[in-house]
Design a protein around this nucleic acid. Structure first.
Lengths: 130, 130
DNA sequence: ATAAAATAAGACTAAATTAGTCCAATATAT
DNA sequence: ATATATTGGACTAATTTAGTCTTATTTTAT
């Protein structure tokens, strides 16, 4: 329970690698080899992080990825959201899901504050102090 | 991310039903129908909860399940652990998993305090105030 | 005693999600 | 131009989760 997905683990590991390299670019290939992450999968993850402005990508020769924000400003919550999508504890609540228990189940409402606290907590942990 | 499994949802819903019924027994069949949960699956879940002394089971005619503890003493963490097994955020750390990144990856150690806080938090939420 | 009503346990199948691959397209420095 | 990168999307494989089925055991009422 609450186990991070491989995607999330890989993302954090790759980010930590990039933090150590500071502003220097690193290619997917390099990161994949050093961190022992399957390269095509890592490529996807770094793309997701770039879309959320956590990383900056440069295409072409001498291209690669580097941090687009100071490490202290990147929260664990940011990474989770970029890679896994919005954090929510119940299946219902996403617009497409209709729940046959709606009439009597108050799980979602009860979980809402828990979820909120959890997110707040994860937002306070940056990749640096984490 | 952090979405509760169906098992967990079903367990909490069933427990809330049992809380409303107070000390009265309810059969798996009854709970399954009222809460719209597949009966054989629910049966498994209630067994897990009974093993952890969250529920008390009585076999035979007129048997069923009832709470084995006051609702206020049952924490969300208890339910999660009973149904999902120990809460841990990394795949490594369970004895059977060997990680090829061990030499340089400190994810597990860094996640340890996060995980601890999370568990502490979930332990403080009972089925009543939740 | 016996039948009926209940949980217990484990093997099994199906569905869904996650992990990982592959390939063609686009961008860029030399 | 060409080599080296990322981009994006479709695809397959593996794993996990959800759900079913069957048989055994326990208990009670008759």
């Amino acid at each position: 329970m609450f186990k991070l997905s491989k995607k999330t683990e890989y993302s954090i590991i790759a980010l930590q690698y990039l933090i150590k390299r500071e502003a220097q670019m690193a290619t997917v290939k390099e990161i994949a080899e050093k961190c022992k992450i399957p390269q095509p999968l890592l490529a996807k993850l770094l793309q997701l992080l770039a879309r959320k402005q956590i990383l900056r990508s440069v295409q072409g020769v001498n291209g690669g990825y580097r941090l687009d924000q100071p490490a202290a400003k990147i929260s664990v919550a940011d990474v989770l959201e970029a890679v896994e999508g919005p954090l929510r504890m119940t299946a219902c609540g996403s617009s497409s899901v209709r729940c046959e228990r709606l009439s009597f189940c108050d799980l979602r409402q009860r979980l809402a504050p828990v979820q909120k606290e959890l997110i707040t907590y994860l937002q306070k942990i940056s990749l640096l102090d984490f």
